[in-house]
Amino acid sequence: MARASEGKTLGVAAGRRSRDPERTRNEILEVATEEFSQHGLHGGRVDEIAARTRTTKRMIYYYFGSKEGLYLQVMEAAYDAIRRAERQLDVGGLSPVDGLRRLAEFTYDHHTSNRDFVRLVSIENIHRAEHISKSKTIHDLNSTAIDTLDGVLRRGVAEGTFRTDVDALDVHMLISSYSIFPVANRYTFRTLFGRDMLDPDRHDHYRRLVGDMVVATMTQRPSTEWKT
């Protein structure tokens, strides 16, 4: 009886999926994100993704074309999620200093709470961006982040608050470096120095630090202007 009941449950789930392909696709992407972030493109198993989503390899290939196609759409979805969240910040309504701090703190919050994203980016860097370079959307998705940051910096320069020798890509690099490091280097750092950078009790402290660091960088005079 238990086996028959289980079969019925799976049948109902399968029936729902057949009527809701978008839901099925999203479930596959969610599980594939975890699988690829843990094992990479080559180590990740489509069989495992199919089993966990109660689908089949054939269905996955129907939606995504191939294993690499699935991996690429996982990457696109990961970048799309952070950029959509950024657009909701409305930093244009804040002062340049507050807007810059808000972007820095948001990025830190996102990366430390979406660790699969950081792992995926780290894995893709091992492959020298071989796969995302084939994407038709990732470049445009990420250009919006630079445009938003550039708008904040330009307003700060115009009002005389920010230095003029640093551009949006420089600042994006600073913010990303600080926000990615705790996830990408958590275990080696903890082994070497005995501190867990993702300790919840330290989150607010590190969050303030990234905001302080970026604001201080942009509001101080360039080192070439200091008299020796």
Score class of each variant (00 low, 15 high):
E6C: 07
M75E: 05
D196H: 10
V91L: 08
H42K: 14
H42Y: 13
Y71H: 12
V157D: 00
R102W: 07
S95R: 08
R25F: 03
Q38C: 09
A85V: 07
A81P: 02
N114L: 01
A184F: 06
D196G: 10
V31P: 00
T107A: 09
D90S: 13
H131S: 05
V152M: 10
T219Y: 01
Q73E: 15
S113W: 01
L41M: 11
V171K: 01
T9G: 07
A104N: 09
E68H: 04
T9S: 10
F36N: 03
T9W: 04
S177L: 13
I146H: 08
L41W: 01
T217Y: 10
E225R: 09
T33K: 02
M173Q: 14
R84M: 11
A158R: 14
T55G: 05
E86I: 12
H127F: 13
V74N: 00
A129D: 14
Y63I: 02
E34I: 06
T144M: 13
R186T: 02
L100E: 05
R202W: 10
L120A: 02
E76G: 05
E86H: 12
P200R: 03
R101F: 02
R128E: 15
D204T: 13
T9R: 14
S5W: 08
G15D: 10
R102N: 12
E225V: 04
T164K: 11
E35L: 04
S113V: 02
N114I: 02
L153S: 07
A32G: 07
P222F: 03
E225S: 11
E76F: 05
V166C: 13
T53H: 03
T191I: 07
G7Q: 09
R45H: 15
S113C: 02
S143G: 08
L149M: 15
N26Y: 09
H205V: 15
R101T: 08
S95M: 10
P182M: 08
Y61V: 07
Y178S: 03
R54F: 11
A78V: 04
D98A: 15
V183W: 00
S95E: 12
Y108C: 02
Y63S: 00
F36K: 04
V97I: 14
A77F: 00
V214R: 00
F181K: 06
D116G: 07
I126Y: 14
D199L: 06
H110E: 06
H127Y: 15
I180M: 12
A50Y: 03
E124P: 03
R19L: 13
L29Q: 05
R17G: 06
I60Q: 03
R58D: 13
Y108F: 15
V12C: 03
A77S: 13
